[in-house]
Amino acid sequence: MSYSGSDPVGEMPEVWLGSHTARSHGVKVARIHMHDWLILLLLVIIDALLNFIEPFHRFVGQGMMTDLTYPFKPNTVPVWAVPILAGVLPIAVFCVYYYYRKDVYDLHHSILGLLFSLLVTGVITDAIKDAVGRPRPNFFWRCFPDGKEAFNPVTKDVICHGDAKVIKEGYKSFPSGHSSWSFAGLTYLAWYMSGKLRVFDRRGHVAKLCIILIPVLIAVLVGISRVDDYWHHWTDVFAGALIGTTVAAFCYLQFFPYPNEIEGWAPHAFFEMMAERNKVQPSGVRANSICMRGMTDIETAFMAADT
């Protein structure tokens, strides 16, 4: 819903900046979205179960080992680093914006949307991993850590004698979880920064575009590392990136307008609140009680430092 009060589109009273803080409105906003937070908890439980169950063990014959004998190397980007890049980093940016603008609607909805992006992506990724059971490029050394092959004389399938947990992870190549999570969080951050920086205001400031591409570049580099480490085939990384990017777009647009729109700097809930306030307050009272300042440049009003 777009704000359609008596003010020019995309403008707002200066006094409203900082009038909706976490202390004054945080509990109210969180209570309204309590069911969303409960769904997030459910997604966490589902994803945990998906990681607990055994994936499908796809048939791997001796002739199929050609593309599965790459070295078993450690991760260039550790598993623990992915939540930091995809989750903590974006939330830090949200908090910095909140520090300057004190808009709890933006803070709450940006974090909620990000968590949905990550967890929905995680559930989709892990569900596909378990269902497909594609061997990783380093599957040979997971299955035969001593280098001695063993195959069933009847079915011709592999008979692994390595560590059970290592073998289990060896059947989870498609799609790449590192890639899907990185793109889910960092692409969401790129969408968020696009709205705040007004990248698509048609003024040709290419520097803004370069800034929002930094998170995307980080996600790309994470994906490349998965191929370089021989933990994933390139198609695994491509599929993971596609899943993460798509989910991030849907989750962002659930809470925010398109970044190229004139109202792209704030969540939908903010404009809904503005519209409701205008319905409640008579225009005469509103004009006398609030000192207005015309703002013909949204980017200057909301992104430049306060004067």
Rank of each mutant, 00 (worst) to 15 (best):
M1N: 09
S2M: 04
S4E: 15
G5Y: 11
P13L: 09
L17G: 13
H20E: 14
T21N: 05
A22S: 15
G26L: 03
V27F: 14
K28S: 03
I32N: 11
D36G: 02
V44C: 03
V44S: 00
G63A: 07
M64S: 14
M65Y: 08
T69I: 12
F72Q: 12
T76Y: 01
W80C: 05
P83L: 13
L89Q: 07
Y99A: 12
K102S: 06
D106T: 14
H109Y: 14
L112N: 01
L119N: 09
T125F: 05
I128D: 00
C143Q: 06
P145S: 05
G147W: 06
T155C: 07
K156D: 04
V158F: 00
C160M: 03
H161S: 02
G162P: 08
A164C: 06
K168N: 11
K168H: 06
G177A: 02
G177I: 09
H178G: 01
H178A: 03
S180A: 10
S180C: 11
W181I: 01
S182Q: 04
G185E: 04
A190K: 02
M193S: 04
G195V: 07
V199A: 00
A207S: 10
C210S: 06
L217T: 07
I218Q: 05
V220E: 08
I224G: 08
R226E: 08
R226C: 11
R226A: 11
V227E: 10
D229G: 13
H232A: 05
V237E: 01
A239I: 09
G240C: 14
G240K: 08
G240R: 02
I243Q: 05
V247K: 14
A249G: 13
F250G: 09
Y252C: 06
L253S: 06
Y258G: 03
H268L: 12
M273E: 15
M273K: 15
N288A: 15
N288C: 13
R293W: 10
M295D: 08
D297P: 08
I298K: 02
A304P: 00
